[in-house]
Design a protein around this nucleic acid. Sequence first.
DNA 1: ACAAAAGTGTTAGCCATACACCCATGG
DNA 2: CCATGGGTGTATGGCTAACACTTTTGT
Lengths: 262, 262
Amino acid sequence: MNTTHEVLDFVHDGHKRYLPHLSIDCVIFGYHQHQLKILLIRYHAHTKWSLPGGFIARDETLTQAASRILAEKTQLNDLFLRQFHTFGDSPTRLNELGARQVHNITYSKVGVTIDQNNWLADRTLSIGYYALVDYLDVVVKPEFLVDEYCWRDVNDIPPLLFDHNEIIETALLTLRSQMYQQPIGYNLLPDKFTLPEIHALYETILGRQFDRRNFRKKLLTLGLIRQLAEQKKIGPHRSPFLYEFDSDTYHRSLEEGAVLGF
Amino acid sequence: MNTTHEVLDFVHDGHKRYLPHLSIDCVIFGYHQHQLKILLIRYHAHTKWSLPGGFIARDETLTQAASRILAEKTQLNDLFLRQFHTFGDSPTRLNELGARQVHNITYSKVGVTIDQNNWLADRTLSIGYYALVDYLDVVVKPEFLVDEYCWRDVNDIPPLLFDHNEIIETALLTLRSQMYQQPIGYNLLPDKFTLPEIHALYETILGRQFDRRNFRKKLLTLGLIRQLAEQKKIGPHRSPFLYEFDSDTYHRSLEEGAVLGF
DNA sequence: ACAAAAGTGTTAGCCATACACCCATGG
DNA sequence: CCATGGGTGTATGGCTAACACTTTTGT
């Protein structure tokens, strides 16, 4: 939606293409060098930030919708993307008037008012998905109704629209608990990475520290990573060895689960 | 819905009270004495069985809706009830015609045809909840549109309507993986229970065996259960001791997670 | 030579696992 | 006394956790 005409069409006829009452909200975790951030957007004329989201087209599956929405924002495909919860309890989701007012501020940009019967004024439940990306890989696409976007540190999230703070909270809990049972990193690290790199990744996402020696031992014992003969030049310091994921073990662990047990 | 009039009202005006496009399906696990069963229902004039389900009223929260639907079927409140996944990928959920045909069979009972514009003919996503009950406690309430119900063993589920087999599969996987991280049993055992009873509960739900001695040790070490001085009379055999849950530890483990680590 | 970062091995304690015999009860 | 089911303790191995010094590299 990049023109006034497209937006007006969406407001008036969106319910013909999309399912009303249901949206998808994406918690896009962006990791890079010891920082874990979340992509937030600010809809037109709002002061509060929100999570990026979208609707489910009538002719696409739920998974397709989530991938499409994520790809629209990040221009990236084949990301780590997981459904984690469906939200329908918050008072902000029961109060149709509140939602309508929020939309009215946004859509004032095209001079249209959402009336009580408009599909966007309906009560909407939201299916939460989270994704993990390297935020340096992401070129966020400007959108007509979005004034700005930003990457905010997970520990410094401001009050957001609707129940989006709760959605982030749940996403983070889910991400962390899944990380203890499944390998993570394929999408966040280069093909060949150093031990300090993957070590920092785990420490940052899980928000705690691991002993370097035990960490390496664990990943090697599980067969998740393989040490290479090459080293990486990192300037005025000792050169770390490069490692790569063992694709077989990695994907088997993704499916069957592998207890990291730290 | 127990009269023709109520059903007709639901078919024609249900979209005013309920959110269209979204339903809740409940996987009700019924445990009793070494058996783990699932409650299935057969809608009027259908040959295939289904999961019990329902819609979300416009003025209730998602959690309220799930509890209400469960209470309507089982007459029980305060059950162990958990959302586990939202389903919107199955081809049977994309094909509106198929869903309409299924509904038409059911609603033939009241001589009404669901046309293309009826809200029940819309594509519907389903939010899956699972519950755990003692199936001897359940008195299933007869419903106008339901010809029969039955408790089927989890290992003997026939082909069901729509994607309900997949929903059960996912529910069972979730239940089992949660059971390793959280205590279960409060709703399934009497206040005072014997060790063989809770032992059988775990073995049945998780589908594997545990050494009696190690099992007891584990639960006592975690502080989840407390041994009482009383014993239970069980006929022509040695009387087993009674135990009770330690309410504090139990609820703390529910929230924080407790690794059973068998 | 110094600063910064990476590499490396051992030990102790806990916990999961495996395992078999005796006891109580009612018929 | 017999059949059935319940109660109980120990030993082993593996895994987690804790811990500090040396090596490399560039300036």
